[in-house]
Structures are given as structure tokens and as C-alpha cells.
Simulated assay, not measured.
Amino acid sequence: MIWLLVEVHPKNTATFVFTDLTNLSGWSSNGVAWSIGLMSIALRLTNWDTALHLAEEMKDASRDLPKTIWGCVLISSVLTFPWVISLMFCMTDVQGLLNGPVGTIAPFPQLIYNVSGGHMPSTIGVSCFSVVLSLTVGGPSILPATSRIVWSFAKEGALPSVFGQVNSYSNVPVNAILLVTVIISGMSFIYVGNATAFYGTSSGVTAV
């Protein structure tokens, strides 16, 4: 965020950031386009889903779960809001971002590439950092949440009982975690066949 704020000159105006609406969605209604655009950012500002799925493992869920939910909302908002505003000021060429080689797959590395004037070390560094961030922050929060759903279904007989087993050594549902890992990894290949289907599937979580 700091690097972008330093490197991008001139930046977008406050009027563009806070009042302008650029509708590239294909919807004729700006209201619909605006509402759809809120979906992805709303997920980042809430971020309490994992805590709910782990409530069964809390020693005192009635006391600790509400605190955890409020903590997730507060931390996510404090970290995300300045980041989003900074990006809005620094994304001066939206079409150039979308039409870049990896703009639709990974818009942030494309933004770094465009801002740096095609400086590959900067672009590769940011891309690698994004992957590491996903593996160390995003993955560990998604896998427990989704694996606990599989584990709960398996305990109730809705899925094969092997996914309801808890590993005696680690005391976690390893089989459920492995199943979820395979499914999530497999879903990423949807993009190879149809980008629209991939984005539709990945954005479904925000609609829920």
C-alpha cells in the first residue's frame, strides 16, 4: 500500500474515489452493478465465518464466540478499509489493468506491473508475496471452517463416516481437511476451461 502511494503520480481525485461510478459490468443498471461490486469487499470486512464453524470446539462458546466475531469484524475493517481506499486512489487506468496479460486472473500483480513500468522483479516479488499470504493467512482460515462442515455432516451420516474421524495424534479431522483441500484445489482448474464459471463459483460465497 505504501509503495503504491509513493509510486503512483498523479493519483485519482477524491471525487473519483468517493463519488464516481464506473460501470464495466455489462449491467445497464448502475445500482445493480454497484451492489454486485460490494459483494467481494463485504467478505473482507466481515471475516467471521471461520469462528462460527469452530464454535463447537470452544470451551465457552457463549462467552468467547461473540467476542471473536466482533474482533474479526474490527480487525478486518481496520486493515481492509485503508487498503481499499489506497487502491482506489492508485488505480488510475482501469482498462489497462483489466486488459493486461494477467489482469483478470491476478489484478494486483498486474497493477504493480503497470505502475512499475513493467519492472519484473517488483511484479514477481509481489506475486510471490500474495501466494505466501494466501497460504499462510487465507488457507489456514478457510480449511478449518470448511473441513468442520464436512466433519459435522459425516458425524450425522450425511457423508461417509471416514470423514467424521478425528486423528488421535493431532486431534483434528485430518480426512475432512484432506478432502476439502483436494476439492478447493480442483475447483481452481475451472478457470482453465471457463473464466466466467470460475468467477461465478468463487463469488458465490459472498452471495450466501
Rank of each mutant, 00 (worst) to 15 (best):
Met91Glu: 08
Thr92Met: 02
Thr92Ile: 04
Thr92Gly: 08
Asp93Ser: 03
Asp93Thr: 02
Asp93Lys: 11
Asp93Leu: 03
Val94Gly: 06
Gln95Arg: 13
Gln95Tyr: 09
Gln95Trp: 04
Gln95Glu: 09
Gln95His: 14
Gly96Ile: 02
Gly96Cys: 06
Leu97Met: 10
Leu97Arg: 11
Leu98Cys: 06
Asn99Gly: 15
Asn99His: 10
Asn99Ile: 02
Asn99Trp: 04
Asn99Gln: 06
Gly100Asn: 04
Gly100Trp: 01
Gly100Met: 05
Gly100Ala: 08
Gly100Cys: 03
Pro101Thr: 01
Pro101Cys: 01
Val102Gly: 08
Val102Gln: 14
Val102Ser: 13
Val102Glu: 14
Gly103Tyr: 02
Gly103Glu: 07
Gly103His: 08
Thr104Cys: 06
Thr104Ser: 02
Thr104Pro: 03
Thr104Gln: 12
Thr104Lys: 15
Ile105Cys: 00
Ile105Asn: 00
Ile105Arg: 00
Ile105Thr: 01
Ile105Tyr: 04
Ile105Met: 00
Ala106Gln: 07
Ala106Asp: 05
Ala106Arg: 02
Ala106Asn: 10
Ala106Gly: 03
Pro107Tyr: 04
Pro107His: 02
Phe108Ser: 02
Phe108Gly: 04
Phe108Asp: 03
Phe108Ala: 01
Phe108Tyr: 15
Phe108Arg: 02
Pro109Glu: 00
Pro109Asp: 03
Gln110Asn: 04
Gln110Met: 00
Leu111Ala: 09
Leu111Lys: 11
Leu111Glu: 10
Leu111Gly: 09
Ile112Val: 15
Ile112Gln: 11
Ile112Asn: 11
Ile112Pro: 06
Ile112Ala: 09
Asn114Pro: 04
Asn114His: 10
Val115Phe: 10
Val115Ser: 12
Val115Asp: 12
Val115Thr: 13
Val115Met: 09
Ser116Gly: 05
Ser116Val: 00
Gly117Arg: 08
Gly117Leu: 02
Gly117Asn: 07
Gly117Phe: 05
Gly118Val: 00
Gly118Leu: 06
His119Met: 00
His119Pro: 05
His119Val: 01
Met120Lys: 14
Met120Thr: 07
Met120His: 09
Met120Gln: 10
Pro121Leu: 05
Pro121Arg: 06
Pro121Gly: 02
Pro121Ile: 01
Pro121Asp: 04
Ser122Gln: 10
Ser122Cys: 03
Ser122Leu: 14
Ser122Ala: 14
Thr123Ile: 01
Thr123Gly: 12
Thr123Met: 10
Thr123Glu: 01
Ile124Val: 15
Gly125Leu: 06
Gly125Trp: 14
Gly125Val: 05
Gly125Met: 06
Gly125His: 13
Gly125Cys: 02
Val126Gln: 10
Val126Pro: 08
Val126Trp: 08
Ser127Glu: 08
Ser127Gly: 11
Ser127Thr: 14
Ser127Ile: 00
Ser127His: 14
Ser127Gln: 11
Ser127Tyr: 11
Cys128Tyr: 09
Cys128Val: 15
Cys128Ser: 12
Cys128Trp: 12
Cys128Lys: 13
Phe129Gly: 15
Phe129Ala: 15
Phe129Ser: 12
Ser130Asp: 09
Ser130Gln: 12
Ser130Cys: 15
Ser130Phe: 07
Ser130Val: 04
Ser130Trp: 08
Ser130Lys: 11
Val131Lys: 12
Val131His: 11
Val131Ser: 09
Val131Asp: 01
Val132Gln: 11
Val132Lys: 15
Val132Ser: 14
Val132Asp: 09
Val132Thr: 13
